[in-house]
Design a protein around this nucleic acid. Structure first.
Length: 469
RNA sequence: GGCGCAGUAGCCAAGUGGUAAGGCAAUGGUCUGCAACACCAGUAUCCACCGGUUCAAAUCCGGUCUGCGCCUCCA
């Protein structure tokens, strides 16, 4: 299995630190509002990475935080006149609802920054003892960036270039810093803000320290994979590396994975530009499984544009898979339980070819677009070979394989059993009678009536099928 | 200004040295009372443009144009 590592800018063979186990940390959202569809991309992508690794037999310890102390949360709390924790608790609950609807598995552990303050104080203390941090007059604790020799190794930036780019910082009043590149580990509280006691001042942690601490606590000093959106490469992940490696004296993470952005009108989403959708907005218009399918239909390291046209197309494509499974279920209802014929046995053997293509795609840095192509080829194979006369074991094998591969992508392809209302069954029977009597006008009238109730009829060789639309 | 990514059919999107996957849309056909679903068929002599390397390039190198991202909170 190969993974593109931002650190080396190359695809590298994945070798876990501990055989059979994967320790993985994914930076989670700041919970000051409903999550937007851009937040959903890393959730979906890295959930799929996790599912594939589990499919390959790894025990994955997957940790993803919620940042629940932050300026934006405090601002919202002030606006509503409530405690910051009221805001964060509310949006963590809403985020979990969205994740479930996206079929994103809960992490092994979802730590909260505010529960980890003690660990942050310990790490900051260690950094100060080692000379990597210092306290300014106002109590702020800064990381001494120049002391970490490898600073810039992830984002491939040169310290002097950064110095130039940040020139404005030097004159913006942060002159208590020794160096413009230094970043905050701990900052003093402002009036009305949540705060914690510390050896330096009553205050709260900087943004970067929480991930270093939570990763260390739940996964250890060295982990296999650290992941997040590409905008986190600098400064967030770069700073995490500096803090963790300076404090622990060990390599922080072996593989760094970053997803590209989800764009709207080929531009990054932003509230000010007005091109901004929450996951909840989209859920009102589409099944969120379609959003998941849409995101996996492109490579995670490529920018992906979002539009209603593309969602329609994705919905149609995803519907093709659902339709195939639905058809197999329909055939299975009356299929013979006899053994597979020789011909069926030979066809069943071909199923492994689709799995091989799927695995090959996923092994190559999680090429979900290619993996989904393999599922489509499998769907076509199933549609071509599944017949009314097929045996139940054969049909079951076809369906099982589609469901298995789709499930690795986190795509639900089997509809729940739904019972028809007695009225609707009666209408279908009336339409069949009308058709038999060649009263097609009446038959079409009934079909139209059912369509208006959201029931779409299909007359197949095997009988009348229906589905909700 | 510095660093980096991308440009493949109407649309989306794989493919990174050996002669263009897959999906959506559209067309013709089979099936159907008609539809829908499904299946079959054809559909890019060519991968932004210009030059170069090679027996061979969409794939490597150089340049041009265009779009985007990071350097500041951000998935």
């Amino acid at each position: 299995m190969k993974i593109y590592n931002t650190l080396s800018k190359k695809k590298e063979e994945f070798i876990p630190i501990e055989e059979g186990k994967v320790r993985m940390y994914v930076c989670g959202p700041t919970v000051y509002n409903l999550i937007h569809i851009g937040n959903a991309r890393p959730m979906i992508v890295f959930d799929t990475v996790r599912r594939y690794m589990e499919h390959k037999g790894y025990a994955v310890n997957y940790v993803s935080n919620f940042t629940d102390v932050d300026d934006k949360i405090i601002k919202k709390a002030v606006e509503e006149g409530v405690e910051a924790s009221v805001i964060s608790t509310r949006y963590i609950a809403e985020c979990k609802k969205d994740m479930e609807a996206l079929n994103v598995k809960p992490a092994t552990m979802h730590p909260l920054a505010t529960n980890e303050i003690g660990g942050m104080l310990d790490m900051i203390r260690t950094l100060m003892e080692k000379g990597y941090a210092y306290q300014a007059e106002d109590g702020t604790v800064y990381f001494r960036t120049r002391n970490f020799r490898e600073y810039g190794k992830l984002s491939h930036k040169n310290l002097d270039d950064l110095q130039g780019g940040n020139r404005s910082l030097l004159v913006s009043g942060e002159n208590q810093k020794e160096d413009a590149l230094d970043f905050v580990l701990w900052k003093p509280k402002k009036e009305g803000e949540p705060y914690w006691e510390s050896p330096w001042c009553e205050g709260r942690p900087g943004w970067h320290i929480e991930c270093s601490v939570m990763s260390k606590r739940y996964l250890g000093d060295e982990i296999d994979i650290h992941a997040g959106g590409e905008d986190l490469v600098f400064p967030h992940h770069e700073n995490e590396i500096a803090q963790s490696e300076a404090a622990n004296g060990k390599t922080f993470a072996k593989y760094w994975m970053h997803n590209a952005f989800l764009n709207i009108d080929h531009k990054k989403m932003s509230k000010s530009a007005g091109n901004f959708f929450t996951v909840r907005d989209i859920a009102g218009k589409y099944d969120l499984q379609i959003l998941r399918f849409f995101m996996l239909s492109a490579h995670y390291r490529s920018p992906l544009n979002f539009s209603s046209e593309l969602m329609e197309a994705a919905g149609n494509g995803y519907g093709r898979i659902l339709n195939s499974v639905d058809n197999l279920n329909f055939l299975l209802q009356n299929a013979s339980g006899r053994e597979m014929t020789e011909e069926e046995k030979n066809l069943a053997k071909e199923l492994d070819g689709f799995t091989a293509k799927f695995d090959e795609a996923m092994d190559d840095d999680f090429n979900t677009a290619d993996a989904i192509a393999a599922i489509f080829e499998l769907v076509k194979f199933a549609n071509t070979h599944a017949k009314e006369s097929s045996s139940a074991p054969f049909l079951g094998a076809l369906k099982g394989r589609i469901v298995e591969l789709s499930d690795i992508c986190g795509l639900k392809v089997e509809k729940k059993e739904e019972l028809l209302d007695g009225d609707i069954e009666e209408l279908i029977a009336q339409r069949q009678a009308a058709r038999k009597a060649k009263d097609f006008a009446r038959a079409d009238e009934i079909r139209e009536e059912l369509l208006n109730k959201g029931i779409l009829l299909e007359d197949t060789r095997e009988g009348v099928k229906w589905k909700r639309v």
